[in-house]
């Protein structure tokens, strides 16, 4: 339920501590390993998860996520597996917010009403749709709100002030700030003007801001965390998983996430 998300950001602000939302690619490298990674991240203290559903044409993703997506699809991953994963995570007793990240067409084909219904029943908290523009936002947000689910708006370094404002008034638990003009992918350095832009942005916004795209290391997360309400790490985590034997993936994810959590303290 979206209430958990609002709650998490309120208490994060009170403690002046940014949230950590790692991204898990559903079905990468296998369903079992991705479930294990999800649980390991939560065990390490992640504030919640972004569960990415693989799509054949991920236009916002760089090579790392494209490859993970392809491997997952080759495994036969289905959209329904994301609901199964949410169920499995809840069964294991984790209470943190879980967000489904999917490209629009998959949700369109399932149907927004059914998507909202199943997501709510399984214990999910909301959705992130990178190719859903703000112009189309409200009609779908209304459907999710009926089920107490959140729909997360994006803002980017190229968003005009009126668009930033439009995102801010959606009443979302947070805004997803794309830190670079570009696709997902680990980068050696943060965007040069990121911390300044964040400071400016946060001065203008009432909605908490979570930063994603291009954050790779615990140290970078620590820096960004000081200037934002949360950080998302995707590609860097996938890279760690890709370099680790399947039997050790849980441990590797847990250890990386713990470092990020500590850096955010």
């Amino acid at each position: 339920m979206s209430r958990a998300l609002y709650q998490a950001f309120r208490s994060a602000r009170a403690k002046r501590r940014a949230l950590f939302l790692p991204y898990i690619c559903l079905g990468y490298p296998t369903y079992a390993a991705s479930l294990q990674s999800a649980k390991a991240a939560l065990k390490a203290g992640a504030s919640g998860l972004e569960l990415g559903v693989p799509f054949s044409d991920p236009i916002a993703d760089g090579p790392t996520l494209q490859k993970a997506t392809q491997i997952s699809l080759n495994q036969g991953t289905k959209f329904a597996d994301v609901f199964r994963m949410i169920g499995d995570i809840r069964k294991a007793g984790f209470k943190q917010p879980l967000l489904v990240m999917s490209y629009l067409n998959l949700v369109e084909q399932m149907g927004w009403f059914r998507f909202a219904e199943v997501l709510a029943i399984k214990g999910g908290d909301g959705a992130i749709i990178p190719d859903l523009p703000l112009e189309q936002f409200s009609k779908f947000r209304r459907i999710l709100i009926q089920k107490n689910l959140a729909l997360i708006p994006f803002i980017s370094p190229t968003s005009s002030p009126d668009r930033v404002k439009k995102a801010d008034v959606q009443g979302a638990p947070f805004l997803y700030y794309v830190s670079v003009t570009g696709v997902t992918g680990a980068r050696k350095t943060l965007a040069p003007d990121l911390l300044v832009s964040l400071k400016n942005l946060r001065g203008k916004l009432k909605t908490p801001v979570v930063v994603g795209f291009g954050i790779s290391t615990p140290a970078q997360a620590g820096l960004v965390g000081k200037a934002s309400d949360g950080v998302i790490i995707a590609s860097a985590l996938i890279q760690i998983m890709s370099k680790t034997k399947v039997s050790k993936i849980g441990k590797a994810v847990e250890s990386f996430c713990r470092k990020v959590v500590n850096a955010l303290r």
Binding site: L104, P133, Q136, S156, S159
Partner: peptide, 14 residues
Amino acid sequence: GGQYVPETLMVALR
């Protein structure tokens, strides 16, 4: 039709 693209591109389309 429409404009179903990541936010970063909305400014370019405009």
